[in-house]
Amino acid sequence: MFPTPIEKSSRAVQLSYQAFLPLALFLWLLPLIAVMIFSIKPDADFTSGNYWGWPSSFEAINNYHKVFFESAMPRYLFNSVLITVPTVIGTVALASMTGFALGVYKFKGNLLIFFMFIAGNFVPFQILMVPVRDLTLDLGLYNTKTGLVLFHIAFQTGFATLFMRNFIRALPFPLIEAARVEGVAEWRIFWYVVLPLMKPALAAMAVLIFTFIWNDYFWAVVLTQGPESQPVTAGITSFNAQYRAAYHLMSAGSIVAALPPVAMFFLMQKHFIAGLTLGAVK
């Protein structure tokens, strides 16, 4: 293990390490803690210039109540759910199939198609922006959640294929061969042999894509406008325009907008990290 385990050093070093940990964490998260403090302060503190002193009263419930019941925030949050969940399902479905095809079969063009997915996944969004917007307009899907979902599924399939294919590659191949010898049809091998083994990869993919799509801002701005279809990342800017300079409300709004992926991360931490390392770092 590197660096040397702290248990092997003197008591003083151990104690100072344990004392320094929370301090380091506090400094690291300082900008975020600042926002949390803002979100529980009353309006009066901002007008009187008491930005960082002790809050004159604790208004957490009031501030968050306003966000949830007196703004378009719930609408945006709901839109985000309706955009994110179908994207996750669609991407995982498509990518488990492409990953299976590229991971199990040897055929001409296999590596070429695989590299097309990887390369496409890395391109700057802006080179797709105008054509995808026109495409969406032509399909009559501009400013709809469906338009956003369809594009997200297509784009995320690139990244998800990379991950799924590498995962399937690492599965024991004799298992598939044994099934073939038994005369099991190929699609049944996919459904009954490979898919059950892919559960950890499916979970990792699902959490990761959930986070990516929930946090997407660019495509939300390019393909939607207005509260009927915009997700929360884009909605927060209109929310902030509505409450300009009301820092307590804007802070509460941002925290609400950031929360779902955070919750997802804490619930599914192991899978999340497996996904982030692209399965390459064991």
């Binding site: 498509l94 590229l102 097309m116 054509p131």
Partner: peptide, 29 residues
Amino acid sequence: NEIALTPWLFLAPGVLFFLFYVIMPIYQS
């Protein structure tokens, strides 16, 4: 031809979708 055909059947939806929404727009740009 099952072993030769299956990968293409499995690839078709993903690849077509990707060509339509990612690769083609690059050329259009």
